[in-house]
């Protein structure tokens, strides 16, 4: 698969990449974590959340879409970029209706985990408190739009991996919403085994009867911060 390999630097760390890799893919492989939300390794990148935005040769670009190239100088872990990333996470908390203590996904939620990792404390913005519909019409899956962050992972997974196009976007601007390919989710071809039902980073697409199988306190991000799995790849070399 790999073409010629080359190197570039991220925060003074030399990272090896092969032709065709994005900055994010190369950094993941090298154990350098760049915070991200809408990106999923099995899906084509979409550039929605902008959390992975880095300074690339002095210009801002999303690491998930920008191809790596030889000698590139990338800045990622800077106070300014991390503050911008935190602001984006805060925007998402203000945009939706997110009540972590009452959410089945708490501890396993990438939005919440990014909030912790990026040092989000009290929300500095007034909530927008939108009206969002819940769709529980499907026998196995519930769609809790209050928690949707419009990352389109489900849209992309359903189209490209499941071949069903169950999900889509509707509207524009701050009125953008997650749409389904029928009157309600129960009328679509979505199955609980679909990739689209498994890629949601937050508590929007939930498999019914699974909510509390793993108790609070023993979930993914209860043990270690988001990104720790990627950083672990690099840790041995440090020592």
């Amino acid at each position: 698969m790999s073409g010629k390999s080359f190197t570039f630097t991220v925060d003074d760390v030399v990272v090896e990449a092969s032709a065709g890799q994005t900055i994010l893919q190369a950094c993941d492989a090298a154990g350098v974590y760049i915070p991200r939300l809408c990106y999923h390794p099995e899906l084509e990148p979409a550039g929605h959340c902008r959390v992975c935005t880095c300074s690339v040769n002095g210009r801002f670009s999303s690491a998930c879409t920008m191809p790596a190239s030889p000698g590139m100088v990338v800045e990622s872990d800077t106070p300014s970029l991390n503050a911008d990333r935190r602001t984006i996470i805060e925007m998402l908390f203000a945009e939706g209706n997110h009540f972590c203590p009452a959410c089945e996904k708490s501890g396993d939620c990438e939005l919440q985990a990014l909030g912790y990792r990026l040092g989000m404390e009290a929300l500095p913005f007034a909530n927008l408190w939108p009206h969002r519909d819940i769709d529980a019409s499907h026998p196995d899956i519930v769609l809790e739009r209050n928690r949707c962050v419009l990352c389109t992972r489900c849209v992309r997974a359903s189209r490209l991996l499941d071949g069903k196009s169950v999900f889509g976007l509707e509207g524009r601007g701050v009125h953008l919403r997650l749409n389904v390919d029928a009157g309600c989710l129960g009328e679509t071809a979505l199955s609980a085994a679909d990739k689209a039902a498994a890629v949601c980073p937050v508590g929007c697409i939930l498999i019914k009867d699974h909510g509390y199988r793993t108790p609070y306190g023993r979930r993914r991000f209860d043990a270690e911060p988001i990104g720790a799995d990627i950083e672990a790849k690099r840790a041995p070399r440090k020592g």
Partner: peptide
């Protein structure tokens, strides 16, 4: 009014 809504900083940031 004119933000397309694709990305978070523009979609939410303009309203904030």
């Amino acid at each position: 009014e004119e933000s397309c809504g694709w990305c978070v900083p523009c979609r939410v940031g303009t309203t904030l």
